[in-house]
Nucleic acid binder design. Structure first.
Lengths: 244, 244
DNA sequence: GAGTGGTCTAGACCACGAG
DNA sequence: TCGTGGTCTAGACCACTCA
């Protein structure tokens, strides 16, 4: 038994979610009810509830209640260095894709290594599982690279369509740098992913360059930090084996 | 100006840390003083302070005070798929290394693919920057793989010494799988890294296998989520270039 | 309007660390 | 012992959502 009240309450609620006393999508008892049930003050109850939100177990909705999140299972973003293949697997996600063009601002200009104000294609992908948002991805392609006709019905939540379309459009992809970081969400992400401001996100940023060193694609994927991972598989090159 | 009190206070403290009104290592005014200074209640002050802790800006010490953390700058864990090289760069870190042997429990047994109870060498690396902890790494090597004589003075905070020693010991490294996830810290990590239970960590797990498919090394690196990243560089294989 | 969560207050008592 | 942060309480008022 936990020594602290809020930890004990969080544990109890967690257990009840785990064993199914509170089912996915259903509303938790209101905080007023929980206060009575646990004989605790509002502050203590909320401390427990916020903890569960940060763990990705519940979604808090102002004016509505606290709801049990549908568990997606582990979402994996795969990179196979041996085959230069990328894939994201996990639960069956519903993907919404959209497309627009923007003028490069300072940040985009620097990252894509293009002049300020250049036209950039932006593909946005949002994935959901049982109406709960799961991922947010944006793919940026300078319009000087390719005028793509990518089907924005997007099956991949991480915008792999665009990369494939680039290869099909005879863009000569040479190297990819993938950056992974963990951070707290900005307001937009907190809203779009329905996560609390204390729930960390996993950010995956992928920059692909062609054989001339020109950036052809910048992808930024944001996933809730809980229940997600990125996996890289690589093979030791022959020369290292020789050395041994 | 923020609409919420605690957000406004957090912003103000953040700004004062940024401009150097509160210098790294120094103590913030006590919460009682902050209450007076901002005319806010303890709850509100603490909400702001906890936020700063989760952002990695301060360290809270029970009975002592809240201290400004020494900024390490971005800590990068690099993996170069083209050279199978790994490196961790960032501020100059002080590294403590230690070594022990343990019997494999269920988890280790499964991950290392060895019998339960087998002897495993465990190398632990802790890095600090200006006395503030920065990283925690453990390297597990089954004793059937190699009886290493690794200098535990370890220069690399991510246990690269062990991997190099394996290659030198004629272990034929074939493939490496790296898993990266973001999660909340367990109690030990929270204590060792001096981070709050709400501060996310970046976990990097690396499993190296030899040409027989045997696991020769399991490394688990835990970094605070703020100010850290993992970067992978890969080159598109020739065949993909042909296809284009 | 009724019920829900979001924010804030004022105050209490406990636990930790240093002199 | 004293000053610090850690936890908790009881209560207030606001903001959002829906019937």
């Amino acid at each position: 038994m936990a020594q602290n009240r809020h930890i004990h309450i969080a544990e109890d609620l967690r257990r009840q979610i785990a064993v199914g006393s509170f089912t996915p999508g259903s509303r938790l008892p209101s905080e007023a009810v929980l206060m009575e049930r646990y004989g605790a003050s509002r502050t203590t109850i909320r401390e427990a509830v916020v903890k569960l939100e940060n763990e990705g177990l519940i979604i808090r909705r102002h004016g509505l209640g606290n709801f049990v999140r549908h568990a997606t299972g582990l979402i994996t973003y795969n990179i196979d260095g041996r085959r230069a293949a990328r894939s994201a697997v996990g639960a069956t996600l519903e993907v919404q894709a959209s497309h627009e063009t923007v003028q490069a601002d300072a940040g985009l200009s620097e990252r894509l290594n293009i002049p300020l104000g250049s036209t950039v294609s932006v593909y946005t992908y949002k994935s959901h599982y049982m109406h709960d948002p799961c991922s947010l991805a944006r793919v940026y392609v300078p319009q000087t690279v390719a005028l793509l006709d990518v089907p924005v019905t997007g099956l991949s939540p991480t915008g792999e369509d665009v990369r494939e379309a680039l290869v099909k459009a005879h863009v000569r992809v040479a190297a990819t740098v993938t950056r992974i970081a963990s951070r707290l969400p900005v307001a937009e992400e907190s809203r779009e992913l329905r996560i609390g401001s204390g729930t960390a996100v996993l950010e995956i940023e992928r920059i692909t360059t062609d054989i001339d060193g020109q950036v052809v694609e910048l992808t930024r994927i944001v996933l809730p930090g809980y229940g997600t991972e990125a996996v890289f598989t690589e093979q030791a090159p022959a020369r290292e084996l020789e050395a041994a």
